[in-house]
Protein backbone atom coordinates (compact mmCIF):
# COMPACT_ATOMS: atom_id res chain seq x y z
CA UNK A 1 0.00 0.00 0.00
CA UNK A 2 1.46 3.29 -1.03
CA UNK A 3 1.14 6.25 1.26
CA UNK A 4 -1.23 8.82 -0.16
CA UNK A 5 0.25 12.26 -0.09
CA UNK A 6 -1.40 14.16 2.71
CA UNK A 7 -2.62 17.65 2.09
CA UNK A 8 -2.14 20.27 4.72
CA UNK A 9 -4.85 22.42 6.14
CA UNK A 10 -5.38 26.14 6.55
CA UNK A 11 -5.86 27.18 10.12
CA UNK A 12 -7.26 30.52 11.06
CA UNK A 13 -7.70 31.65 14.64
CA UNK A 14 -9.87 34.72 15.05
CA UNK A 15 -9.76 36.66 18.34
CA UNK A 16 -9.61 33.52 20.44
CA UNK A 17 -10.31 33.94 24.13
CA UNK A 18 -9.91 31.37 26.84
CA UNK A 19 -10.46 31.70 30.56
CA UNK A 20 -10.06 29.28 33.41
CA UNK A 21 -11.94 30.37 36.51
CA UNK A 22 -11.94 34.08 35.71
CA UNK A 23 -8.24 33.97 34.78
CA UNK A 24 -7.63 34.96 31.21
CA UNK A 25 -5.19 32.71 29.43
CA UNK A 26 -5.77 33.76 25.84
CA UNK A 27 -7.09 37.23 25.17
CA UNK A 28 -8.09 37.85 21.60
CA UNK A 29 -5.44 35.82 19.84
CA UNK A 30 -5.31 36.01 16.05
CA UNK A 31 -3.24 33.69 13.90
CA UNK A 32 -3.33 32.46 10.35
CA UNK A 33 -1.44 29.40 9.29
CA UNK A 34 -1.08 28.41 5.66
CA UNK A 35 -1.63 24.92 4.39
CA UNK A 36 1.57 22.92 4.68
CA UNK A 37 3.29 25.50 6.84
CA UNK A 38 5.44 24.59 9.84
CA UNK A 39 4.86 26.99 12.70
CA UNK A 40 6.64 26.92 16.03
CA UNK A 41 5.11 28.46 19.12
CA UNK A 42 7.31 29.60 21.97
CA UNK A 43 6.54 31.43 25.16
CA UNK A 44 6.99 31.30 28.88
CA UNK A 45 5.68 28.37 30.81
CA UNK A 46 1.99 28.84 31.57
CA UNK A 47 1.38 31.38 28.80
CA UNK A 48 -1.23 29.16 27.17
CA UNK A 49 0.62 27.20 24.50
CA UNK A 50 -0.88 23.84 25.40
CA UNK A 51 -4.26 25.48 25.84
CA UNK A 52 -4.03 26.84 22.31
CA UNK A 53 -3.21 23.40 20.90
CA UNK A 54 -6.08 21.82 22.82
CA UNK A 55 -8.43 24.41 21.36
CA UNK A 56 -7.21 23.72 17.82
CA UNK A 57 -7.56 19.97 18.44
CA UNK A 58 -11.14 20.57 19.52
CA UNK A 59 -10.53 19.05 22.94
CA UNK A 60 -11.78 22.21 24.61
CA UNK A 61 -14.04 25.08 23.69
CA UNK A 62 -12.94 28.67 23.62
CA UNK A 63 -14.76 31.41 25.50
CA UNK A 64 -14.77 33.59 22.43
CA UNK A 65 -13.60 33.80 18.85
CA UNK A 66 -13.63 31.20 16.12
CA UNK A 67 -11.29 28.61 14.71
CA UNK A 68 -11.55 28.01 10.99
CA UNK A 69 -10.08 25.00 9.27
CA UNK A 70 -9.92 25.42 5.50
CA UNK A 71 -12.70 27.94 5.94
CA UNK A 72 -15.00 25.76 8.04
CA UNK A 73 -15.65 26.76 11.62
CA UNK A 74 -14.50 24.08 14.05
CA UNK A 75 -17.01 22.67 16.45
CA UNK A 76 -16.32 19.53 18.43
CA UNK A 77 -13.29 17.34 17.87
CA UNK A 78 -10.93 18.26 15.07
CA UNK A 79 -10.94 14.95 13.22
CA UNK A 80 -8.15 15.80 10.81
CA UNK A 81 -5.72 16.87 13.48
CA UNK A 82 -3.55 14.60 15.55
CA UNK A 83 -1.69 15.60 18.67
CA UNK A 84 1.61 14.43 20.03
CA UNK A 85 2.22 15.09 23.70
CA UNK A 86 5.34 15.81 25.70
CA UNK A 87 4.89 12.76 27.91
CA UNK A 88 4.08 10.54 24.92
CA UNK A 89 0.93 9.22 26.53
CA UNK A 90 1.32 5.76 25.15
CA UNK A 91 -1.03 3.27 26.74
CA UNK A 92 1.28 1.18 28.94
CA UNK A 93 -0.97 -1.88 28.64
CA UNK A 94 -0.80 -2.01 24.86
CA UNK A 95 2.07 -3.30 22.78
CA UNK A 96 3.75 -0.83 20.48
CA UNK A 97 1.80 -1.94 17.41
CA UNK A 98 -1.52 -1.77 19.25
CA UNK A 99 -0.70 1.68 20.52
CA UNK A 100 -0.13 2.79 16.96
CA UNK A 101 -3.41 1.19 15.84
CA UNK A 102 -5.35 3.17 18.44
CA UNK A 103 -8.41 4.78 16.91
CA UNK A 104 -7.92 3.21 13.48
CA UNK A 105 -10.80 1.29 12.04
CA UNK A 106 -9.74 -2.32 11.92
CA UNK A 107 -9.41 -2.83 8.15
CA UNK A 108 -5.74 -2.86 7.26
CA UNK A 109 -4.79 -1.14 10.49
CA UNK A 110 -2.03 -3.65 11.27
CA UNK A 111 -0.28 -2.96 7.97
CA UNK A 112 -0.63 0.77 8.40
CA UNK A 113 0.82 0.56 11.90
CA UNK A 114 3.80 -1.46 10.72
CA UNK A 115 4.39 0.98 7.91
CA UNK A 116 4.23 3.96 10.25
CA UNK A 117 6.62 2.30 12.66
CA UNK A 118 8.95 1.58 9.81
CA UNK A 119 9.02 5.26 8.96
CA UNK A 120 10.13 6.15 12.47
CA UNK A 121 12.68 3.34 12.47
CA UNK A 122 11.04 1.08 15.05
CA UNK A 123 9.81 -1.81 12.97
CA UNK A 124 11.65 -4.31 15.14
CA UNK A 125 9.89 -3.24 18.36
CA UNK A 126 6.30 -4.02 17.32
CA UNK A 127 5.59 -6.42 20.14
CA UNK A 128 7.28 -4.57 22.97
CA UNK A 129 5.46 -2.79 25.73
CA UNK A 130 6.16 0.95 26.13
CA UNK A 131 7.94 0.26 29.42
CA UNK A 132 10.61 -1.58 27.44
CA UNK A 133 11.45 1.47 25.31
CA UNK A 134 13.71 4.44 25.92
CA UNK A 135 12.30 7.96 26.06
CA UNK A 136 13.27 8.69 22.47
CA UNK A 137 11.78 5.43 21.23
CA UNK A 138 8.53 6.15 23.05
CA UNK A 139 8.27 9.48 21.28
CA UNK A 140 8.92 7.78 17.96
CA UNK A 141 6.00 5.47 18.67
CA UNK A 142 3.88 8.48 19.61
CA UNK A 143 4.87 10.10 16.33
CA UNK A 144 3.98 6.97 14.39
CA UNK A 145 0.65 6.84 16.20
CA UNK A 146 -0.11 10.39 15.13
CA UNK A 147 1.03 9.93 11.53
CA UNK A 148 -0.78 6.67 10.92
CA UNK A 149 -3.99 8.68 10.65
CA UNK A 150 -2.59 10.79 7.80
CA UNK A 151 -3.48 13.97 9.64
CA UNK A 152 -3.62 17.16 7.65
CA UNK A 153 -2.69 19.01 10.82
CA UNK A 154 -0.07 17.74 13.26
CA UNK A 155 -0.03 19.35 16.69
CA UNK A 156 3.15 18.82 18.67
CA UNK A 157 3.09 19.85 22.33
CA UNK A 158 6.72 19.95 23.44
CA UNK A 159 7.21 16.44 22.11
CA UNK A 160 10.96 16.49 22.53
CA UNK A 161 11.13 18.40 25.80
CA UNK A 162 12.11 15.43 27.89
CA UNK A 163 14.74 14.00 25.57
CA UNK A 164 18.49 14.36 25.72
CA UNK A 165 20.18 16.75 23.29
CA UNK A 166 21.36 14.16 20.77
CA UNK A 167 18.09 12.30 20.60
CA UNK A 168 16.34 15.61 20.26
CA UNK A 169 18.32 16.67 17.21
CA UNK A 170 17.75 13.27 15.65
CA UNK A 171 14.00 13.54 16.28
CA UNK A 172 13.89 17.07 14.89
CA UNK A 173 15.40 15.72 11.69
CA UNK A 174 12.85 12.93 11.59
CA UNK A 175 9.90 15.25 12.11
CA UNK A 176 11.20 17.66 9.52
CA UNK A 177 11.73 14.97 6.90
CA UNK A 178 8.29 13.42 7.48
CA UNK A 179 6.75 16.86 7.18
CA UNK A 180 8.61 17.48 3.92
CA UNK A 181 7.40 14.16 2.53
CA UNK A 182 3.81 14.48 3.57
CA UNK A 183 3.13 18.20 3.48
CA UNK A 184 0.82 18.35 6.48
CA UNK A 185 0.45 21.58 8.40
CA UNK A 186 2.45 21.42 11.62
CA UNK A 187 2.25 23.43 14.82
CA UNK A 188 5.08 22.75 17.23
CA UNK A 189 5.07 24.06 20.78
CA UNK A 190 8.55 24.14 22.20
CA UNK A 191 10.51 25.84 24.96
CA UNK A 192 13.67 25.48 22.91
CA UNK A 193 14.08 28.51 20.67
CA UNK A 194 16.89 26.84 18.79
CA UNK A 195 14.62 23.95 17.98
CA UNK A 196 11.98 26.37 16.76
CA UNK A 197 14.43 28.16 14.47
CA UNK A 198 15.88 24.88 13.23
CA UNK A 199 12.62 23.41 12.11
CA UNK A 200 9.91 26.04 11.58
CA UNK A 201 8.94 28.33 8.72
CA UNK A 202 7.71 30.79 11.28
CA UNK A 203 8.21 31.29 14.99
CA UNK A 204 5.46 32.75 17.10
CA UNK A 205 5.74 34.08 20.62
CA UNK A 206 2.74 34.14 22.89
CA UNK A 207 2.81 36.76 25.61
CA UNK A 208 -0.06 38.06 27.72
CA UNK A 209 -2.56 35.93 25.87
CA UNK A 210 -1.66 37.39 22.48
CA UNK A 211 0.87 36.87 19.77
CA UNK A 212 3.72 39.23 20.40
CA UNK A 213 6.10 38.17 17.67
CA UNK A 214 5.49 36.45 14.45
CA UNK A 215 8.83 35.85 12.82
CA UNK A 216 9.32 34.04 9.53
CA UNK A 217 12.60 32.17 9.38
CA UNK A 218 14.22 32.64 6.02
CA UNK A 219 16.91 30.04 6.17
CA UNK A 220 17.44 27.35 3.56
CA UNK A 221 16.80 23.74 4.58
CA UNK A 222 18.50 21.66 5.84
CA UNK A 223 19.42 24.35 8.32
CA UNK A 224 22.91 24.67 9.70
CA UNK A 225 23.08 25.69 13.32
CA UNK A 226 26.52 27.09 12.68
CA UNK A 227 25.13 29.61 10.23
CA UNK A 228 25.51 33.12 11.75
CA UNK A 229 22.00 34.02 10.65
CA UNK A 230 20.74 31.04 12.60
CA UNK A 231 22.26 32.32 15.83
CA UNK A 232 20.95 35.76 15.11
CA UNK A 233 17.39 34.52 14.84
CA UNK A 234 17.76 32.56 18.05
CA UNK A 235 19.21 35.47 19.93
CA UNK A 236 16.61 37.93 18.73
CA UNK A 237 13.75 35.72 19.74
CA UNK A 238 15.29 34.92 23.10
CA UNK A 239 15.82 38.59 23.75
CA UNK A 240 12.17 39.25 23.09
CA UNK A 241 11.04 36.48 25.39
CA UNK A 242 13.19 37.84 28.19
CA UNK A 243 12.00 41.39 27.46
CA UNK A 244 15.50 42.70 27.09
CA UNK A 245 17.15 44.55 24.31
CA UNK A 246 19.22 42.40 22.09
CA UNK A 247 22.82 43.37 21.59
CA UNK A 248 22.32 43.04 17.85
CA UNK A 249 21.26 46.05 15.90
CA UNK A 250 18.29 44.21 14.58
CA UNK A 251 15.13 44.29 16.52
CA UNK A 252 12.04 42.40 15.68
CA UNK A 253 9.07 44.58 15.24
CA UNK A 254 5.96 43.62 17.15
CA UNK A 255 3.80 44.24 14.15
CA UNK A 256 2.98 40.87 12.62
CA UNK A 257 3.00 42.13 9.08
CA UNK A 258 6.50 43.47 8.83
CA UNK A 259 9.15 41.62 10.75
CA UNK A 260 12.51 43.34 10.55
CA UNK A 261 14.64 40.36 9.76
CA UNK A 262 13.73 39.35 6.28
Amino acid sequence: MKKVETQGMNVSLNSIEKRYDQRNVLEGLDLKIEEGEFVAIVGKSGCGKSTLLRLIAGLENSNGGTIELDGNTLSGLNEQARMMFQDGRLLPWKRVKDNVCLGLSSAGSKEKAIQALEQVGLKDRLDDYPSQLSGGQKQRVALARALVHDPSLLLLDEPLGALDALTRIEMQGLIESLWEQRKFTAILVTHDVEEAVAIADRVILIDNGKISINQPIHLPRPRQRTNPDFSMYVEEILARIMNRKSKNHYSIVVNQESPIIS
Partner: peptide
Protein backbone atom coordinates in the same frame (compact mmCIF):
# COMPACT_ATOMS: atom_id res chain seq x y z
CA UNK B 1 -6.73 12.02 32.96
CA UNK B 2 -4.03 12.67 30.40
CA UNK B 3 -4.50 9.22 28.89
CA UNK B 4 -8.23 9.83 28.68
CA UNK B 5 -7.61 13.15 26.96
CA UNK B 6 -5.23 11.40 24.57
CA UNK B 7 -7.86 8.77 23.82
CA UNK B 8 -10.41 11.45 23.02
CA UNK B 9 -7.91 13.28 20.83
CA UNK B 10 -7.50 10.04 18.88
CA UNK B 11 -11.21 9.78 18.32
CA UNK B 12 -12.10 7.23 20.99
CA UNK B 13 -15.40 7.64 22.75
CA UNK B 14 -17.95 5.63 24.69
CA UNK B 15 -17.34 1.90 24.53
CA UNK B 16 -13.94 2.18 22.84
Amino acid sequence: KKLIEMGKAYGLKGKE
